[in-house]
Simulated scan of single mutants.
Amino acid sequence: MSAVSSADALIPAEFPVRLLARGLDVLVLAAVDVGLGRLMGYGFDWLLVGSAFVFLYFSLLDAWAGATLGKFALGLRVLGPDGGRPTVRQSLRREAFTLIGSIPFVGPLLALAAWIVIARTIRASPLRQGNHDAFAGGTRVVQVARFVQ
């Protein structure tokens, strides 16, 4: 089953709108993360639970709903190689890079490097697919035309 109706034209989503959607998701996740930290303390357990929550938030929402909250808000959808929603496996592979930022000490620098590589590969691709999309088997992010003016 397709995540987007056949009446909607699909336009490859550009990096700036994808980054804005990720930013909206980060606001939601930051609130949850602070809540978790206040509840369980800001220790190693919090790092593990928070990292797992972030990874699963992006992976499972993309697989089950075709988009995260930020993507929904901006009219973006994630498609699998067949044009429907990505499978859970594809989504887990696509979002694996999010775990890099959780590595103590060097994680933020590695995450920044990953984002730079992803941004460059998205901009270089005609379908705006990053290397994380290729790693997932050919997923892509599209802008649903009814949201584009």
Rank of each mutant, 00 (worst) to 15 (best):
G75P: 05
N131W: 13
P12Y: 13
A124Q: 06
F44Q: 15
Q143H: 09
F135M: 11
L69I: 08
V17L: 14
I103R: 04
A21K: 00
T87Y: 10
G83W: 01
V106I: 15
R93D: 05
R146C: 11
S91L: 13
L112H: 10
P16R: 05
I100S: 15
H132G: 13
T139M: 07
L47F: 10
V141T: 07
R140H: 14
A65I: 13
S5V: 11
G84L: 00
V144D: 11
L19C: 10
L10Q: 08
G23W: 06
G137L: 12
A7N: 13
R89L: 10
F97Y: 07
L47D: 15
D33V: 12
T98R: 06
V78Q: 09
S6Q: 02
R128M: 10
A67I: 02
L48A: 09
G41C: 08
R93L: 15
G84E: 10
G43S: 06
W115I: 15
G70V: 02
S6Y: 02
R38Y: 15
P108K: 11
A30Q: 05
V88A: 14
G83K: 04
A119V: 05
T98H: 07
G50I: 04
L112G: 13
L109F: 14
Q149I: 08
K71E: 11
S91R: 13
S6P: 14
G70S: 04
Q129S: 02
R140N: 03
A52K: 03
D45G: 10
S102K: 00
S2P: 09
V88P: 04
I100C: 01
L19Y: 10
F55Y: 07
S51I: 03
Q90N: 01
L61W: 02
F72G: 15
G84V: 00
L61D: 05
